[in-house]
């Protein structure tokens, strides 16, 4: 019993290590885009990814053929959505200093942009994951793409106003 347990644990650790070696780069890039941090100073993205990977590791034996990358990505997205929701109303921490290519965007716009375009998740799956209508996901994605390609001349004020208007 104990031997079987140990062997299963060793096998799980081995498989998980292979998975992390393959997927961590892309997932960390996605997390860094989500948190809008600089690529070389991304403590929030690292923490987000470590927690998602830990959950993936904990549910490794119950995946039943499901893609672990998909699981980790889902966890990353939902955890970020929840954290952004909680962070939004706090006055002192409402708007952290943001860097990176998606810095001027609102958290929800970043999330949808990363899921839809960077990760290539289908519109319907994104909508189901975030609990939004498909049309809304499409509208937010279009607006975020426009804001990313053509940043407004003074980035501070209009984006803040738009982010407030965009978040219901």
């Amino acid at each position: 019993m104990r031997e079987r347990h140990a062997s299963r644990e060793a096998r799980r650790a081995r498989e998980f290590e292979t998975f992390v070696a393959g997927a961590a780069g892309r997932l960390l890039h996605a997390a860094t885009l989500l948190t809008a941090e600089a690529p070389d100073a991304n403590p929030r993205a690292r923490r987000l990814l470590a927690l998602s990977l830990a959950h993936t590791y904990a549910s490794w034996d119950r995946l039943h053929g499901e893609d672990p990358y998909d699981r980790a990505r889902q966890h990353l997205a939902t955890r970020f959505a929840r954290a952004a929701w909680h962070r939004y109303g706090v006055p002192g921490r409402a708007r952290l200093r943001s860097a990176g290519p998606l810095g001027p965007l609102a958290p929800q716009e970043r999330l949808i942009l990363v899921l839809r375009l960077y990760e290539g998740v289908a519109e319907e799956q994104t909508a189901a994951l975030l609990g939004l209508p498909v049309e809304r996901v499409r509208a937010i994605c279009d607006r975020a793409t426009a804001a990313l390609l053509h940043p407004p001349p003074s980035p501070a004020r209009p984006v803040t106003a738009e982010a407030k208007a965009a978040t219901p």
Binding site: V20, A21, L28, R46, A50, L51, L53, Y57
Partner: peptide, 14 residues
């Protein structure tokens, strides 16, 4: 140390 950290946390969770 990302993998080791995840394994540590995940193992604790389990």
């Amino acid at each position: 140390d990302l993998c080791a950290e995840a394994v540590r946390r995940g193992g604790r969770m389990l």
